[in-house]
Nucleic acid binder design. Structure first.
Ligand code: MN
Ligand code: MN
Ligand code: MN
Ligand code: MN
Lengths: 222, 222
DNA sequence: ATTAAAATTTAGATGAGTCTAAAAATATTT
DNA sequence: AAATATTTTTAGACTCATCTAAATTTTAAT
């Protein structure tokens, strides 16, 4: 039973929402993500339930079945592999890849995606630091924290971003922050949680809105 | 004014048919190519005419406007570039690329296709020997002839195929015939136009059905 | 020049995906 | 516990792309 492009987008939306919320996914949350009206979502939920891709109880929200989860993760896998391709092979910047990957993720060819993965040397993460699911739908999660949760006085490495909007990524570009950049947390202001960070020997101030969207892990060597 | 995937497929079909027929393209010819009923084609022709992509006179067939021609050629350009990508970078065989390219040709991103072209080193022909239109919709046609029209006693180089069905391409693979292969026309049978051809020092017999689908040009050095 | 055949268009219906407006169910406040 | 607000579903309609069956036009044959 083949899935349409639209169904794939719904599955992916449900998957991403369920990643953050853990519990059942609401109609409204999906509507917001998909940018559609709640009534349209209800219609689609019935279809996905008929195909056993989600379990759906009226008024109670939905969650993915194992079949649905695998379908969703497969789309995520394709999306992230294509993003790597665009950056590594086609000179795209990391803020330019998402929209094109949204199209490419729906191309149906098993051989295509397997060969693409090989061409890219089996990358583990996409240009935004998000893990790439393997063929079996397994995801290797690394223990990363938000920079806002980091401890004063310690050194970190940037390993990803939460918000991958073009605006935010361009902000990071401006201050030469990318995946792998070393960040030293000098100080944190109690009043507004803004942070003094040293990057490439430059000291900059980051608001909570910024530090809440940068993933880091403790730098090797303290 | 954006074109839908379906409209793009109709434009491409009309373009390809007009290449062989020269004159107006008939509703039935399109229906056959698209694998749809004639009534569906009529509906779409009205839409394409409204968008000034074709000129359409009831019962009299259609032809592409300049705007429509450019749109069609752009799809062809993408299709063929993707085919090169699949063969050169992803280890696809020349009989495996068409269906995937049918999907990829509809991806919308100018940067994507320009960068892809650069990654592939600006190829001039696709894996089946068909020319790749340039950014401006110009097509560099080489003077090739069908092997069936070749002269006995002369040597040729295979430069393309007319039929690029998997069945035909696998036949060519079996006899180690590909783009660039040298073919020497030894003899031609008057009765059925079958030919005796020498390839890689092997003599083989090809029926008219075969020689009618192989493009060749005179081998350099007579 | 009629008639028959073939090609094309129209009319009406269907399914996928969406919408608005109204109804129903659930959650929150008083 | 009622009243109110929010969320979700239903009902009915729309667009796109398709179909079948019938009507029309063009082409070919008598
Ligand atoms: Mn993305
Ligand atoms: Mn990403
Ligand atoms: Mn092709
Ligand atoms: Mn081709």
């Amino acid at each position: 039973m083949l899935t349409t492009l639209t169904e794939e987008n719904y599955l992916k939306a449900i998957y991403h929402i369920s990643q953050s919320t853990q519990s059942e996914v609401s109609t409204n949350a999906i509507a917001q993500k998909i940018d559609a009206k709640a009534s349209s979502v209800t219609d689609m939920l019935k279809k996905l339930a008929d195909k056993n891709l989600i379990t759906y109880i009226k008024y109670r929200g939905v969650h993915l079945t194992e079949k649905g989860r695998l379908a969703a993760v497969d789309i995520v896998r394709k999306h992230r592999l294509w993003e790597v391709f665009l950056v590594d092979k086609l000179n795209f910047a990391w803020d330019e890849v998402h929209d094109v990957a949204e199209q490419l993720e729906h191309i149906k060819s098993q051989k295509l995606i397997n060969e693409l993965e090989a061409l890219l040397d089996f990358p583990t993460h996409d240009p935004h630091g998000d893990p790439i699911p393997d063929k079996n739908g397994q995801i290797h999660r690394t223990n990363k924290i938000l920079l806002s949760q980091a401890e004063v006085g310690k050194s970190y490495t940037c390993v990803g971003v939460l918000d991958s909007s073009s605006d935010f990524l361009k902000y990071l570009d401006k201050y030469k922050i990318g995946i792998g950049t070393a960040l030293q947390l000098e100080d944190k202001e109690d009043f507004d949680q803004s942070m003094n960070i040293i990057i490439n020997d430059d000291a900059i101030v980051m608001s909570k809105a910024i530090t809440n969207n940068i993933y880091v892990k403790l730098h090797k060597g303290n």
